[in-house]
């Protein structure tokens, strides 16, 4: 069994008095793709936002239980949010490049962390764009506005922006929901490439996507983790009745 990079123990999460996650116990392995599925409002996006503590930006959120990411308790008193988010990158639902050039989008994180000298920026841009298979298309247009790219290219750019930070984990929150089916497949292919070097957690409302693209699948319902396991076995012989009902399309 591979190393666990994310472990939650008895994780509860509340928005004010509303409990969004209940007693989540989950272990996610490195260099795999783990899919979180479930109907709207089941807490899958909330859960993925726990892993880089993006829920902190919402007022009135509090958590119980323990979450270890890359061996560190991220809710501990010594937790370093900035270091955490460098190691755990995030790709969002809608492609959201900054209204800057392609080049500036990639270097944004590097500038912030002063982690590279300006001389290395060029290499980092080329490396990141190559990794998301955009370099050949864009190498002559690096100074163009990122907003003029196609949606798929924009989403690839957002992934490249994360890769430039040299993260270990990439969280993807329904990364294909704004894309057409062909672009969706191509992003899934990209994820297969990326998983050689990165661990990926993807939230998706698209069961086929989870079945196609992921190694492990977690099924969530009403803030509870109902079932977690190998994707193949979840989709072929689910243990829980709820899981079976969901993947056969009886609700959600």
């Amino acid at each position: 069994m591979k190393k666990l990079i994310i472990e939650t123990r008895h994780l509860d999460l509340f928005y004010g008095s509303f409990q969004a996650l209940t007693d989540i116990n989950l272990g996610i392995e490195e260099k795999n793709i783990t899919a979180l599925i479930g109907p709207s409002g089941c807490g899958k996006s909330t859960l993925v936002r726990v892993f880089n503590r993006m829920n902190d930006t919402i007022e009135g959120v509090h958590t119980n239980g323990e979450v270890e990411v890359l061996g560190e308790n991220i809710f501990g008193p010594e937790a370093d949010l900035i270091a955490l988010r460098q190691k755990v990158g995030m790709v969002f639902q809608r492609p959201n490049p900054f209204p800057l050039s392609v080049y500036e989008n990639i270097t944004f994180g590097l500038e912030i962390h002063h982690s590279r000298s300006k001389k290395e920026f060029g290499e980092m841009v080329e490396q990141s764009l190559t990794d998301v298979m955009l370099w050949n298309d864009l190498k002559d247009r690096l100074d163009r506005s990122a907003l003029r790219l196609s949606l798929e290219q924009q989403q690839r750019l957002c992934i490249a922006r994360v890769l430039a930070m040299k993260p270990q984990i990439i969280l993807m929150d329904e990364p294909c929901s704004a894309l057409d089916p062909i672009a969706t497949l191509r992003i899934e292919e990209l994820m297969q490439e990326l998983k050689r070097n990165y661990s990926i957690v993807i939230v998706t409302h698209n069961m086929q996507q989870a079945a196609r693209a992921s190694d492990y699948t977690a099924f969530m319902y009403l803030g509870n983790l109902i079932e977690f396991g190998n994707t193949k076995s979840i989709f072929t012989k689910p243990v829980q009745k709820k899981t079976e009902e969901y993947i056969t399309g009886r609700f959600g």
């Binding site: 993006m54 949010l81 988010r85 460098q86 990158g89 969002f92 959201n96 944004f108 912030i112 962390h113």
Partner: peptide, 16 residues
């Protein structure tokens, strides 16, 4: 709002 969210998610501090 997405500019702020993305920036924070890339590990920028609030002031950055």
């Amino acid at each position: 709002q997405s500019f702020r969210i993305v920036s924070l998610s890339l590990g920028a501090s609030k002031w950055q």
